[in-house]
Design a protein around this nucleic acid. Structure first.
Lengths: 209, 209
DNA sequence: CATAAGTTGAGGAACTACCTCAGGTTGCTT
DNA sequence: AAGCAACCTGAGGTAGTTCCTCAACTTATG
């Protein structure tokens, strides 16, 4: 086992600055933002970034861990809402709000992320909760029954795309998009769907933007 | 006025090959595909491409003109369908089918195109027809009344995104997405929308993917 | 103050795509 | 069939991006 020697104080400080900067840059530009920009934002040389984080993944983990946690907590709340349909709507809306505010977090939802332990765990947990939220709303008879988890993933994905497109011009435009989708997701609006849902495998094979 | 001397035969042949190749490559990769790939597909040197087409726009015009025309014809048919709602659904469905088959054409719908005369004209015509199709369906009481043209543009955009994502893994997945959207667009499914629609200006300022 | 830990940032490597132009080839005219 | 202009070719220059390294310098710490 590797005995980790404590970091020097300036190194600790720089690490913290880098994490902050990464959070901010990822928020603005998504998880594939140039690392050099993060170093600049942190007021630190690029070499220092590579000293502290040997890969983008480590930095993503450090920066997005807390945020991903918030997304999970949100899902947990929604999964235990008294009214299953309201829980579903709540989840969709607040997830989207988080995504609208943070491109990096949107990348997590879209799974367009370099796999990292922390993010992976959050995604797994999210997947479970999403399935529960969906099933509950269906069993309550409010959410249409022919929708499956992968559909939800795809729709979320689509909303993330309109967000990316309209973020500058009209930061709230996605709310209309989501509202129309939600209306289409109600059981009483349902007309038969033309093709079967994606399998999990197909969804994983879907290429991020 | 410039007297255009006729092209030499080999030049004519190469030009035609380039247009064919461009159609194919744009179809697969979208309108920002590398020009070198088009030249390769045409079995012609890159210099020749630049001899025949001084800009990407000219090539786009030559390659997509006919296809854009088809999209317009489709809209014209839909705009004069006996049943306005069926016309609307038809338009959405067939437009999406064209987009699913041709990434380049999807770029036209998304307006993520270097402005060219031919494409511009097609887009203008399409915009008019779309507005008519929408209005008719609304006046028939089938399409929800709180939807406006820019909404439609955004939704089409979103579907194009899911297409891009799932094209390989599940080429028909977008049909489910569209179906849910259409259900949400019916007048009898409508719940009030939370924010105003995009203005035309905002839509134009929206950034392509 | 000695030393190891840490920082720095210019610079090399690897892509990608664009566009040019000198030199070779070929169609077309007479 | 000769000669010329039109055409084709593709290596190579330009430009932008991002990644990552490392020798030289600085500084925290015991």
């Amino acid at each position: 086992m590797t005995t980790a020697r404590p970091l020097r104080q300036d190194a600790v400080r720089n690490r913290e600055r880098l994490v902050q900067a990464a959070r901010e840059v990822f928020r603005r530009k998504g998880l594939d933002a140039p690392l050099e920009e993060i170093a600049r934002e942190a007021g630190v040389a690029i070499g220092t970034l590579y000293n502290r984080f040997s890969s983008r993944g480590e930095l993503v983990d450090a920066a997005l861990g807390p945020l991903a946690q918030r997304a999970v907590e949100l899902a947990e709340r929604a999964a235990k809402a008294e009214d299953p349909w309201r829980g579903f709507v709540l989840f969709m809306q607040e997830s989207c709000e988080l995504m609208a505010d943070d491109r990096g977090l949107a990348d997590v939802h879209r799974s367009s992320v370099p796999a990292t332990p922390v993010i992976d765990a959050a995604q797994k947990r999210l997947a479970t909760l999403k399935a529960r939220i969906l099933t509950r709303a269906q069993e309550a008879g409010e959410l249409r029954g022919d929708i499956e988890s992968p559909d939800l993933a795809l729709l979320t994905w689509a909303i993330a795309s309109t967000m990316d497109a309209t973020r500058q011009a009209a930061p709230d435009a996605w709310r209309r998009h989501l509202a129309v989708l939600l209306d289409g997701l109600r059981a009483d609006a349902a007309h038969p769907l033309p093709v079967p849902a994606l399998t999990g495998r197909q969804l994983r094979n879907a290429t991020p933007s």
